[in-house]
């Protein structure tokens, strides 16, 4: 009997839960079950009985106009057809997106830590960095890039969901909306804290420079501290953005409302390339211009710019609910 229920559920799963559809489902299920029972009573094997019931079931297309589901049926199979996501698939999607978020934000943090130690261990004003320190810096960049690639590859598994409307079981969708609601405060706090730390961190070298005008170690320490702070703050911004982006995707809110799908979770997607480019600018300026004493200025500028971009993306995209264009 389970096979019959599963079959009928499968036929009906992508249809809207209207009273008319529910009635058709229950009537058709009843007919199929009656037939199945009678076939078994006649001595037909279970396997054979399921096959005959399914053959006799027919086609929902005949019911489309009576059920008012013509538009849903016609959409099925077209490129913009909504994708049905089971609870398990949705959980896996969230898990992959969260791991991706950690890899990207961790990668950015590692790049900035690599630069921090480069600054910390440099000998004096205008001098080249310590060779070992330079090696550690490149190892950090390589590790971060590897992280970005792994994150990009694992998240691209879900490319098929791009530009599609997702459909979840109603109670699952409600649970995710609730979770999104609960995380609203922590999301806002993370973004605000991230931006505040970046801005304050720029003040560290500026302040210490004024207090100890000619002390090279103090300046280096200050710049290193600033870089670590920026790194942590940026990681926080990316993690918050990607985490929220995944939930938005599942609840079809915010920039994942169908008409806005294209511009989603930019914070997460641009973070990797952005900080690699910043590292490239830093290196080019430092080596070509032999400007190790000034080139660290790239980082506060990049940090504040990143904060501006992140805040812009997270707050200026419309967050109003969408009914999925139905």
């Amino acid at each position: 009997m389970d096979a019959i229920t599963t079959y009928v559920d499968h036929i009906f799963r992508s249809l809207p839960p209207t009273a008319e559809v529910a009635r058709a489902r229950s009537e058709l299920l009843q007919m199929s079950e009656d037939r199945y029972r009678e076939l078994l009573a006649e001595g037909v094997s279970e396997h054979e009985a399921v096959g005959r019931v399914i053959t006799q079931f027919g086609n929902l297309d005949e019911l489309a106009d009576d059920l008012g589901i013509r538009s849903e049926l016609d959409r099925a199979g077209r490129p913009d057809a909504p994708i049905d996501l089971s609870h398990g698939e949705a959980e896996r999607y969230l898990a992959v997106r969260r791991r991706g978020a950690w890899l990207v934000s961790g990668g950015v943090l590692v790049i900035l830590l690599g630069i921090a130690q480069l600054v910390l261990f440099s000998d004096g004003a205008g001098s080249d960095p310590h060779p070992l320190s330079l090696v550690a810096f490149f190892v950090a960049i390589a590790g971060a890039v590897a992280g970005f690639i792994v994150a990009g590859a694992s998240m691209s598994r879900y490319d098929r969901l791009k530009d599609k409307e997702l459909r979840l079981e109603p109670q699952v969708a409600a649970a995710y909306r609730e979770q999104r609601e609960r995380e609203q405060t922590s999301f806002v706090v993370k973004i605000a804290a991230g931006v505040a730390v970046i801005i304050l961190s720029v003040a560290i070298p500026a302040t210490l420079d004024t207090m100890y005008p000619d002390s090279e170690p103090v300046t280096n320490l200050a710049v290193a501290a600033m870089l670590v702070a920026i790194g942590l703050a940026v990681a926080l911004l990316i993690e918050a953005g990607l985490r929220r982006g995944a939930l938005d995707r599942l609840t079809a809110e915010g920039d994942y409302a169908p008409e806005k799908r294209a511009s989603n979770s930019l914070t997460g997607r641009i973070a990797g390339p952005y900080w690699i480019v910043a590292a490239a600018v830093f290196l080019a300026w430092s080596f070509i211009g032999n400007a190790w004493d000034r080139s660290w200025l790239v980082w506060p500028v990049a940090g504040v710019l990143f904060a501006a971009v992140a805040v812009g993306i997270e707050s200026f995209t419309p967050k109003e609910r969408s009914d999925g264009g139905r």
Binding site: A24, E27, L28, Q30, M31, S32, D34, R35, E38, Q56, F57, G58, N59, L60, E62, L63, D66
Partner: peptide, 26 residues
């Protein structure tokens, strides 16, 4: 009711016609 109607039609059809469940419900 549904299946009884279906069976009645099946009997009178004597194997010459088979009405699908969706056709009947519709």
């Amino acid at each position: 009711y549904g299946y009884a109607i279906s069976k009645r039609i099946e009997e009178l059809s004597r194997g010459q016609y088979e009405m699908k469940e969706t056709t009947l419900y519709s």
